[in-house]
Amino acid sequence: MWNKLFAWLDERLALNDLYKATLDRPEPKGNWWNTLGSASLFLFLLQGATGIFLSVYYTPSPDHAYDSIQYIMNGVAFGWLIRGIHHWGASVMVLVVFIHMLRVFVTASYKYPRELTWMIGVGLLLCTLGMGFTGYLLPWNQKAYWATTVGTAIAGSVPWIGSFILKALRGGPDLSALTLSRFFAAHIWVLPAVLAGLIGVHLFLIIKHGESEFPGKDE
């Protein structure tokens, strides 16, 4: 019965081929450094899940953002846990993505035919940092407020177009409700969508090209 059902689905969805391509693909000699991309992927999914849970109570308005987070921490069952995972997961993700990039660099895996994988990786790194930057403002506490004031001011120091960038980031010349809501939109919609798309292409390329061999001594 199950076998028949599976065969039916497999015939149409190529489940076995998918399984082979994703989880059963040949690896060069196993190496823990090669697990960091998958670790990044896991962290992305974990941040997505805990972020969705947080959005059930979080309110992106200057009047309520801070109080809603206090409520998550003190008033909701396991709110401290969900927020804690999202909070620390954000830092861990930046770290893991960065070390993943370092390993790709050190093993020179960015060379032909994997240049595009690398370039898309650069996009992934920038988006990951963007997630950290936009998420940091959301608690709307003193640290968040001033960190964003400084961060957007740095972006504003670009020659010629600096003041335009600053206003575009802040939604006006100053930090305001507009800043909070556009950072929120970027944090929960725009950047995750871009990340998901880029990850899809990244993974496709990895499956397509297979994993690079570790560089070794010529024989």
Binding site: A49, T50, F53, V56, A77, F78, G79, I82, I85
Partner: peptide, 14 residues
């Protein structure tokens, strides 16, 4: 993660 998450979601009802 899943079990605390369920408690987190249904908390207002409890």
């Amino acid at each position: 993660i899943g079990l605390p998450a369920i408690a987190f979601l249904i908390d207002p009802a409890l």
